[in-house]
Amino acid sequence: MTQVWDTLPQVLIDGLTLGAIYAIIALGYTMVYGILELINFAHGEIFMAGAFIGTAVLIGLTGLGWVAVMPAIFVLLIVLVITGGLTGMLGMGIERLAYRPLRKASKLITLITAIGVSFLLQDIVRFITETQQNNYIVNTPSLFPGSLSVSGLNIRYSFLVVIIVAILMMIALEFFVNRTKWGLAMRAVAQDQDTASLMSVNVNKVISVTFFVGSALGGATGVLFAIHYGTIDPYIGFILGLKAFTAAVLGGIGNIRGAMAGGMLLGLLEMFAAANLSAITAGLLSSEYKDVFAFAILILVLIFRPEGLFGRAAIEKV
């Protein structure tokens, strides 16, 4: 037990970082699901693409000599904006080409297309990276090196950056969804597409905007991930996306605040499991089981509370 207490502060810090990342990716899933009732499998891949685009932009800026002269936070801002814009367009393009023609088709088919898109993206990123540098694992230059040391606790600067940027993004999204006209239109389309279109809401455009916003956030999170963890490869998106989806389900899918809370909760739980699973079970389960732990949570939530912790149960009408 003492070990659990000793590691707790570090677990909290790591858990919050991971949780913030899960939370923002979960937002993308939840927004799309809220509107189209579609699990956008490719969202994890958009996150991955964001990490790669961000790294490329960062390396490019370093090559231009901008990073050396500008304050790091300013560089981060530029990278985030460029990456967010590009991944947003990517998300919009995917929706236009792969999902829109199938909007009336059965859900099974759309889900399969989504898997196809995610495979395609993985491989495209892999071979672009591999033709550039013979290896698809990329090291991101660290923008915020160094760390604070508070009473034996190691807090990296990038941790603070990730948390602050993540919180800002969430606040911005809340504002966008609840206070702007586009947000209003989005909520209307989520409630009832046909009625919304009767109220002169351009449904297709709203869906495009939703994909743009969700994907831009996902891509920006990819940048944060790359900066904090340092190494990226084309296959990070899949499992991470799956866990972010778990977070979205945990918080009640379609519910934006729920996704944030679910992401944080899942990040904390996973880090806790990674640090303490072998200690608690007396060596029976190694920390390798942390992924099993996350999926087990997903399955349990879906069985006992499919509407999520903060969602309302949907009634199926015939």
């Binding site: 399969i112 196809g116 495979f119 395609l120 993206l121 491989d123 495209i124 071979f127």
Partner: peptide, 8 residues
């Protein structure tokens, strides 16, 4: 993966 994705 590319071929499979495209096929799907």
């Amino acid at each position: 993966r590319f071929f499979f994705g495209a096929l799907l």
